[in-house]
Design a protein around this nucleic acid. Structure first.
Lengths: 135, 135
DNA sequence: TATCAGGTTTACGTGCACGTAAACTAATGA
DNA sequence: TCATTAGTTTACGTGCACGTAAACCTGATA
């Protein structure tokens, strides 16, 4: 059943964010849950959007940038001009992600080097106090 | 010659940041260029650090986080305890980067879908007005 | 000699993403 | 009935990463 709903507390706990943050995302128009009286009721679509927002944050995106990406997933009744701009935006986003990919790969390589430098120092330049067999 | 030096203006232009930003990185202790009188003179080591800072920014790191990573590259006279903690930090950083990697791969896939949805709409549900050969 | 261009310090201002009270409401159970 | 447990609104506060004056210095050039 995709009809499950969530309280703000549930989402906050599941994704380890504060209720304040979730309400803030609503303030800036990134979420718009249903209401039962005044109480917010989040559907699975809201949960998905929240997940996308948080993934954006992990990638260093601002909320505005995240919104742009999320909006990409819901073309719908856009006209031709909008769709063309959307595809441009998609391409730009792709390029930025590729830059991030190469940044990450470089950083991972550097971490390897940093770690082996550490090991070298830890094993000591003292003298090669050989390999007690690990058994 | 690695002995080339740079003015703040040169670095700012090369990396497309403001002089204000560069001075800010100095304020928080991420850069410490030499001086000729009061004028800052950046050596290639400073330029490298700046490059690392900006890469960190592209990956969504705070300046504090970037500093931690940059410090990883200069063990030097650390004692055993520090080195062990450093290796832990390296490992954590690695794990975070791997999370980013999978986030990015997922996002790229979704962009593919979003784009083909666009194309589908643009080519129109009208009728397949076929392929004028691209020549 | 005057006036730039390029650099400097000092310090207050700003946008973003929330944090943190404070005071209120509505349903629930002892 | 009264307190407890979620949830709510309103609104000011905060940390970060700079932006933006304003006022100053200094060497080179017209």
């Amino acid at each position: 059943m995709k009809n499950k709903t969530y309280s703000i507390r549930e989402l906050a706990e599941e994704f380890e964010v504060t209720h304040r943050a979730i309400r803030h995302y609503e303030d800036v128009g990134l979420l718009s849950p249903q209401r039962q009286g005044r109480t917010r009721v989040y559907a699975s679509v809201d949960r998905t959007r929240l997940k996308l927002i948080l993934r954006g944050k992990r990638l260093g995106l601002s909320l505005t940038e995240s919104r742009q990406i999320i909006d990409m997933y819901e073309p719908g009744k856009n006209n031709r001009g909008q769709l063309v701009r959307l595809m441009t935006a998609i391409q730009q986003q792709r390029e930025q992600l590729h830059r991030q990919l190469s940044d990450i790969h470089r950083l991972l390589l550097e971490l390897d080097e940093a770690e082996s430098a550490c090991r070298k120092t830890l094993d000591g330049p003292t003298f090669p106090e050989q390999k007690e067999p690990t058994v």
